[in-house]
Design a protein around this nucleic acid. Sequence first.
RNA 1: GCCGACAUAGCUCAGUUGGUUAGAGCACCAGAUUGUGGAUCUGGGGGUCCCCCGUUCAAGCCGGGGUGUCGGUA
Length: 376
Amino acid sequence: MTNKFSFQINARDGLARSGVISTARGEIRTPAFMPVGTAATVKAMLPESVLETGADILLGNTYHLMLRPGAERMQRLGGLHKFMNWDRPILTDSGGFQVMSLADLRKMSEEGVRFKSHIDGSEHFLTPERSMEIQAMLGSDIVMAFDECPALPATDEAVAASMRMSMRWAQRSRDAFGDRPGHALLGIMQGGVNQELRGESAEALKSVGFDGYAIGGLAVGEGQGEMFRVLDYAPGMLPEDRPRYLMGVGKPDDIVGAVLRGVDMFDCVLPTRSGRTGQAFTRFGVVNVKNARHAEDSRPLDAECSCPACRNYSRAYLHHVFKAQEIIASMLLTWHNLHYYQELMAGLRGAIAAGDLVGFVAEFQARRLAGDLAEL
RNA sequence: GCCGACAUAGCUCAGUUGGUUAGAGCACCAGAUUGUGGAUCUGGGGGUCCCCCGUUCAAGCCGGGGUGUCGGUA
């Protein structure tokens, strides 16, 4: 186990790259998908099961853990890894996304963001400095700078003002992060769907200097077409030799499109949330197992999939346990979705290494099209 | 047997002094969901208003009869 944070690129195919991120707690194969474990749990999954799906790293959340159980308590209990029984790398979001998603519960200023807890109404003041302190107390391996993620659509003026404040916060995050060998701090690019603003943001981040760079502020209402137009230039504005992380994305075809454009890391709640609401991601597209047509379907969800849900149960069973709101429903479908996402990432890594990403993507799209035609 | 209450969507129920195309919640059928508030949102299908007769320009609503359910009582 290395004691240094590093990123090594082993293969390239077009703009896509495949490599390994090394941290004090282990290695992360890229392109990587990070399951979201907001509140010290990947919902409906045991950590060892998440590991079995092929995940190298999880995502945790500063804001939610700050409220409950609390950062100081977490530190006294030995840190997030020990607490949740996951000894591999963890990336923590800074709380910036909650600035948007909990917009009704907070007040912003240059200094930081004052949140009113959705749990008990208590007030919490989150600043770049406090976010760095909390993420250190959690024991995060990859720390995210504190930023604001504005919802789209928004005016250029609003996006510019927000982005510039996030860049000042990025400098404050860097200053407060300090020296933590084996751990990394990632800056977050903002700028909405405006190329000039994205460029300005990238320059600001590079002048501060980070261990890696995230592209934030996408998949927040602009649509896939608009997002890809940004990804046509945004990754290239960031340092070639550092990991690039597209935050909060996405659907399988979002991820494929972003890898083609040079992105290395992803996280998204979709496989886990959809796993709890009956939506399955498969090679052949999306299947909603709650739909009545699965009620007497004795076939597995995906005959080629080796996850427990597909190996041991029929669509009819999955349908039944969802309709009955049994806990196993969330467990099985979350497992399947995470398994599918990790297989997709492994497929992308393999294709890049083999120099056949174009062929891989063609087959990816063809199978989904076939699935649409079969009306799975 | 007698007395009373009730009968409206699959279920539980609203429904104004009689007045447009009879509503809600849940259920059902679908859709959305992208750095997770275990959340939420959106749409859709669905009615012999128990039956018959009457009053009225007009009846879920008023009158009579019948049927059914529930309660009380002997």
